[in-house]
């Protein structure tokens, strides 16, 4: 039974799924039901050190850099419209392969061309982030953002982080002004 988190809540992945090695982070939202331009949402992940910065630019995993240099984190592709059931974008993480100096994997979602399309997260329905066991894709934890999303065009959805020898997941749901560029620069990426 998956744990459903609210904004700010966290859960120990290691306790919920003992022996956990690989996780799949799934992100989803509903395709636009009204007329107008599609919602094209992009997921990205930052491998962060203790100081909340990337070690280098290749720790910024997104549609143009789908795999971390050590291969532990892999973005499985971009969905342009939100069509299809279940996850719209997935990021696969081999927890054991995550380098020791990486403390946290922070997952953000941005709306592509949000300004020119006059879109924001409040217009997107049923956005969620979930963490699944890579062995059988069983869901360990889920966070449904819909009521925490408002006029933001970029949002941190959640983070997977080390805590006293365990891996934990935290529901963030926090807006970030600007978009993908400012978000990346905030984490020390030369974007």
């Amino acid at each position: 039974m998956a744990v459903s988190l609210s904004k700010g809540g966290n859960v120990s992945l290691s306790k919920e799924a003992p022996g956990l090695k690989d996780v799949v982070i799934g992100l989803g939202w509903d395709t636009r039901s009204t007329d107008g331009q599609d919602f094209d949402l992009d997921a990205s992940l930052f491998l962060l050190k203790e100081d909340e910065k990337v070690r280098n630019d290749s720790d910024f995993i997104f549609y143009n850099n789908k795999k971390s240099s050590d291969g532990s984190v892999e973005h499985l592709g971009d969905n342009l419209t939100g069509e299809g059931a279940g996850d719209d974008e997935q990021i696969k993480v081999n927890l054991e392969g995550v380098p020791q100096d990486v403390q946290k994997l922070s997952v953000g979602v941005t709306i592509h061309e949000a300004d020119s399309r006059s879109q924001n997260f409040g217009m997107v329905s049923n956005a969620f982030i979930r963490v699944m066991n890579g062995v059988d894709n069983s869901e360990i934890a889920r966070y449904d953002l819909s009521e925490d999303a408002s006029t933001e065009t970029a949002m941190l959805f959640g983070e997977v982080y080390r805590n006293k020898g365990e891996w934990k997941f935290k529901a963030i749901g926090q807006g970030f002004s600007g978009g993908l560029g400012p978000m990346a620069r905030n984490y020390g990426v030369n974007a």
Partner: peptide, 10 residues
Amino acid sequence: MKQFNRGQKS
């Protein structure tokens, strides 16, 4: 009185 933008929720 609170002013709302499109997409905003409360």
